[in-house]
Design a protein around this nucleic acid. Structure first.
Lengths: 336, 336
DNA sequence: CTGAAAGCGCTAACAA
DNA sequence: TTGTTAGCGCTTTCAG
């Protein structure tokens, strides 16, 4: 049962290919009787149109690209679920591309997209991304691109984010109100918008409560797990060590807990912890983890919905479509 | 800067399109000087070949399809990492398709693949999948398809699995040796190969230690979290309740822990727990979770590697390429 | 209501 | 070493 094409189907039915094509686009030009006949035979012969042949004729590949740093992360995997839910509804497929936090990878992926592999792009930039020529190139090429979560501020397009500043502020304030006066901040990257905003929120909260920020207690996460572990350990081994930690990356939860265990520091007695995380298991950690929970599914879904608006109307102005969906502070035992 | 095509590039260079095409395939027919010239101008004009146009000419779309039940699951997201690592190396892209454990979805996805959207498929079947006509259809259509983790026994193709029987056996034996005489088994599905094998392992271990299996203590997980929670609760509320639980799905970890907390059952004192899971946080749960850890990344990588073998050689016989990669029992505090 | 034919961007056989 | 051309499977204008 070899793949059958529109020509073979036309032959079988003694019709022309254009008639078949019109049937599949539900054209008003075709009689109901013919439609019926075509659809039946198509089903019987297992005819499925080749999407890339249609894509060639100026229409769409029906693929959207999702460019993210990582899949093994609860935020991104939930966001993918949100994206997929709307893509599926629109008859689209989702091409997942991982940057592994590398700017080089990100550039190559977007470059490849110039060739027409996808009709539109949803993207969360890598940790290393600090300028946006590669993104602007793509957009000026006519490909709609929308950011979710991690954005490039200077690119004119829709941005679906969460309230990172407020979340950073709330997490920090929460720890302050729980009695912490020295609080460490574990960030993602200097250039990354979300990291910067969370950090700003953290700094503002400290300032509002007249606490001094200490550079030694602000570190950036790397791709190297060992290195992260050591950095956290270093912070918690200081004489005047922090009594609170705001971790802005889910991946740092385990190292923070492990370092505390290793140094025989009790959470929350000795150190209180808040982490940006969407992990289902946050509630059953030892102790259960206070989190900033992001609206991951919804962010993905919203970003995809807006992308399809742009895909459906030409010259749709994305700039006005940005949206901020709030995160929630979920207080558990690691901080109180 | 609108998308440039091979014709425009040829024009620009006063060359024919075929010359350009040959340059991009590094043909021996073209002089180094011309190659140089073409490559330079291509880079300058940002020319990227349209993959779908090549795909039309009988060549490849350079997309592979990955059909899985779910992304928000540590096993599958790690497997995707493995798959992506080899796809990237081969210049391929990964189309992630989620069945959400629905047979209907699975069928539709494979049907759509008949149209030529992907060059090959890696697949873990849905919980509901109990026969394989849709899969055989695809294969007889000439698309190479390889299973990983969740397979259909009766499809003749490569299957990359882990030692589910042994893992089920080991998990159960471990609990028995820790003193459990009544052990519950939380499965995924009756028809699913992995669930069946893990269950068999469980039953064999019970038999080997002369313990009786009790149907009431063997349940199947559903998509409905509420329902799962209730089912687990019911098991643990019995007069003669089990003192050990083997959970064959990561997703059941949280409900098991929560039910125990709610019923004031202490893990491991009152109930010992082993779970099939690749969660990074297993080690910092309360208490830390004994797991069967699957070689997720490696399974994905292996499956992809074999798929590319089939993609590269025509008439490559996949049947002989099946592989079993062992899982590991990692003992932590939830069981001892 | 149906069909013929051009062409989307690219490759490959053949010609020069 | 380079160019010409047919055609991949489909859509779409235009003609019938």
């Amino acid at each position: 049962m070899k793949n059958i094409n529109i020509k073979a189907l036309a032959c079988e039915l003694n019709l022309s290919v254009s008639t078949i094509s019109k049937v599949f686009h539900d054209s008003y030009e075709i009689s109901d009787h013919t439609k019926q006949r075509v659809l039946e035979t198509a089903a019987r012969l297992n005819y499925v149109p080749n999407p890339y042949a249609s894509s060639l004729r100026g229409r769409k590949s029906k693929n959207i690209g999702v460019v993210i740093p990582e899949v093994a992360d609860s935020f991104f995997s939930l966001a993918i679920n949100g994206i997929e839910s709307v893509a599926k509804e629109k008859g689209y497929h989702v091409l997942i591309c991982l940057t592994h936090e590398s700017f080089e990878n990100e550039k190559n992926i977007l470059k490849e997209f110039q060739g027409g592999r996808v009709d539109g792009v949803l993207m969360s930039v890598s940790r290393e991304t600090s300028h946006s020529d590669h993104i602007n190139d793509l957009i000026s090429n006519g490909l709609p691109l929308i950011f979710f979560d991690r954005v490039c501020e200077d690119v004119q397009t829709a941005k679906i984010t969460t309230d990172d500043f407020e979340s950073g502020y709330n997490a920090t304030e929460h720890l302050i109100l729980q009695g912490c006066s020295k609080i460490a901040f574990l960030g993602i990257s200097k250039s990354l918008s979300i990291s910067g905003k969370r950090l700003e929120g953290y700094l503002n909260a400290l300032a509002d409560y007249e606490l001094k920020a200490d550079k030694k207690n602000i570190i950036l996460c790397t791709n190297d797990a060992k290195h992260n572990y050591t950095a956290i350990k270093k912070i918690l081994q200081q004489k005047n060590k922090p009594t609170g930690i705001v971790a802005s990356v889910e991946k740092l939860t385990t190292p923070v807990y492990k370092v505390c265990e290793m140094l025989k520091l009790k959470i929350p007695k000795d150190v209180k912890v808040v982490c940006f995380s969407n992990l289902d298991t946050a509630a059953i950690l030892n102790p259960s983890l206070t989190t900033i929970t992001q609206p991951a599914f919804e962010m993905g879904k919203t970003a995809a919905t807006i992308l399809f608006k742009a895909l459906e109307k030409t010259n749709f102005n994305l700039t006005g479509e940005s949206l901020v969906i709030p995160s929630a502070l979920v207080v558990r035992n690691s901080s109180s």
